[in-house]
Design a protein around this nucleic acid. Structure first.
Lengths: 116, 116
DNA sequence: ATCGTTCATCGTCGATATACGATGCAAGCC
DNA sequence: GGCTTGCATCGTATATCGACGATGAACGAT
């Protein structure tokens, strides 16, 4: 039927797509939010905001960034919005990053050896 | 000004430090620069600039960002500046990222199971 | 129906990022 | 000595980010 991922399966091959994923992660608050959501500590905007010295609107914006990067999913539930991490997307991003970086280190190893 | 040059052991434990490393990577041009430097394609600013549709000054700034993030090393050589990727730093960053993301996916797995 | 709660969005503001050309410096070449 | 090359930095212009308060919508509770 539908593909397993309703959204575009996390795209991280092109430098642009990879950079987008990295940009979403490259803020301490968003890292902390990811940690909170992945634990049982928080699941909605208010919970997260209650654990951070930030206004609710600011947290909502960070959640939006993570959501648009495809790293979170949201399920409206009563007045709340229930956020969960998208494990598949995180795995894909992690793989893409370690792929990039291991390419670089491997190639660097090779050229380093050549130059010696 | 330069109190502390991040030459030594890439620091990526705190969310702030990790976010700094990710921010340095989160630009398509800088990803491309890393790729070029890690191959044998380029090693100095002019080489990189010659392969990108960017001004030399812009490339120089991107190199500076990567340098200050501790992902590159530079060795002045004649008129050139010889840039090389810091393999140790890349490995440390890669490890820190995959550590963060696997923490999140693991925790998410656990809480997902609990909730079912 | 009214109130309280939760959230997303808007407008704003200052800070930062990204790009460029111009300029100056250091090193090699004539 | 001049000239060229390669680079970093400065100044500047524009765009985007990150934060806030205010506001309105959606919904449950009273």
């Amino acid at each position: 039927m539908n593909e397993r991922q309703p959204k575009i399966a996390f795209e991280c091959c092109s430098p642009e797509a990879l950079a987008r994923g990295l940009a979403a992660l490259s803020h301490p608050v968003r890292i902390e939010i990811l940690r909170q959501l992945s634990g049982a500590e928080a699941c909605c905007c208010k919970d997260v905001a209650g654990r951070l010295p930030l206004a609710q609107s600011t947290v909502s914006q960070h959640l939006k960034v993570l959501l648009e990067a495809g790293l979170l999913r949201v399920r409206p539930q009563a007045q709340r919005s229930n956020y969960t991490v998208d494990r598949e997307a995180l795995r894909a991003l992690s793989a893409a990053i370690s792929n990039l970086l291991s390419e670089c280190t491997a190639a660097a190893d090779a050229s380093q050896i050549e130059k010696n």
